[in-house]
Design a protein around this nucleic acid. Structure first.
Lengths: 258, 258
DNA sequence: CGGTTTATCGTCAAACCGACGAAAATTGCG
DNA sequence: CGCAATTTTCGTCGGTTTGACGATAAACCG
């Protein structure tokens, strides 16, 4: 584990005498999602340099040096650009985008991540970044809207990942505060899927899945209406059986550009 | 889209005057899976050069040059090392592995792919590779077995991907010949999941899903026992509702080394 | 022809789902 | 305080899906 820069040698199976292993610039990009004000939102930054200066983009950046772990680079960029701490929130790899033409500066391959954060966290973020801000994904994925690079396509993939993960995992709860009501959880599903769900059936379903929700014993108050029981996330990660998205009117678009 | 090697410039947000964007060697690795002789098998090659010379590894290699698309590099390596044609078989990105210490030659980040191929295809493969051969995954994932680099861990991830994709997609059929019986399809599920399924319930389920199987009208003969109807893959990609893995005895291990 | 093997069809009870009625527990208003 | 409005929670009902398993159909073998 020395990890010197590009000193990789040895002529793979291509037995040409003089063949250099090609090197590429490696970036990480983050699709940080949350549910706020009844909308699925994503953290975007305004680019301060060329290319795409002034345009909105996903937070991200290059590896700090040739020895930095890729997962760690993602956590670092998350902290630097959004002020969020990777420890304790869900951050998973989405996909790697490596089309040759995707960055005008040259060959840049980006490893992308999705993060799910509670709606309350980090109002806008500090970090060293130029203005990081929450933006509704609907506005960004609209046909005419644009993001820097191929970030619009990446965001579309991230949103689809979020939608389908809600079906068969308990990740919806990571969008909620540490203690939450069944109604708040349902609203997460409704805004991510863009579809209303029957409150009564939803309640029966989630309270019936073992280890999904653990009651705290306390209840809400002062909201108008019957107080709701408060729950915490349980140890379950998988939803069994899955909560299938109802078929029907498609959620508000997810155009593919790129 | 000029794509010159490493001529990426511009001082990101790290405003140090002299900061060079770090470059890494980018590889692709393939977990090519099939079902043969009642076992889930993976295509492995014997390494002809250091490091890990003589050891078994997943087929793969570096980008051919700095302008090669990553997905295309995966298809090229598939053809070169296993003799299989990427067109017409299922090849999807699995994950990118970027730990600093994973390759003793220096910093190598690998974008990994999973491929599902029918059991009949490519007995052992030609290509320019040293001996590519099918190997049962059980033998490779056994506690004491070893593969080059972190390929054992990658294979474990690929197998888990295959197991879960069988639940909610129609991909099991890609392990079968163009025409197949319900029993052959069931055996795919049984060997990938490592547990027996009830033949009658399985039959009812798969024939009930719209657009999963299209009958050819023909039937098998001369197998001893009642002839079975032959089917082709239908246009459906998703299984709705999903075919959930029965809970119970865990499949024959998938140890994590890494 | 009877026995074995394999594929397919049926049956039945339990679990699950969607649609919806109704009770419970609060706030707000007169 | 009494009553309406609101919101949560519990139940009911019918249809679908599932798991366990019996029964039948269509080939083979001797």
């Amino acid at each position: 584990m020395d990890g010197r820069p590009g000193q990789v040698t040895g002529s793979d199976d291509t037995s040409d005498e003089a063949w250099e292993i090609p090197l590429v610039a490696l970036a990480v990009d983050l699709a940080v999602l949350t549910v706020r004000d009844g909308a699925l939102q994503v953290m975007l930054v305004e680019r301060g340099i060329e290319p795409y200066r002034g345009m909105l983009a996903l937070p991200g950046g290059f590896l700090a040096d040739t020895t930095e772990d890729v997962d760690r680079a993602a956590a670092r960029e998350l902290a630097e650009e959004t002020g969020l701490d990777a420890a304790g929130l869900h951050l998973e790899q989405l996909r790697t985008y490596g089309e040759p033409g995707r960055d005008p500066r040259g060959r840049v391959v980006t490893v992308c991540y999705v993060a799910f954060v509670p709606g309350l966290a980090a109002p806008t973020a500090g970090g060293d970044a130029r203005a990081a801000a929450w933006t509704p994904v609907d506005a960004v994925l609209r046909p005419r809207a644009e993001l820097a690079f191929d970030h619009k396509r990446i965001l579309a993939d991230a949103v689809e990942r979020a939608r389908s993960k809600l079906e068969y995992t308990t990740l919806a709860a990571t969008f909620c505060a540490p203690e939450f009501t069944v109604t708040e959880l349902r609203q997460v599903y409704e805004t991510v899927w863009g579809q209303e769900l029957d409150a009564r059936n939803f309640h029966r379903k989630v309270t019936g899945v073992a280890d999904f929700l653990v009651p705290t014993g306390t209840r809400t108050s002062g909201q108008g209406g019957r107080p709701a029981a408060l729950y915490r996330r349980g140890p379950a990660h998988l939803l069994h059986p899955a909560m299938l998205r109802p078929p029907g009117p498609k959620p508000p678009a997810a155009s593919r550009t790129s």
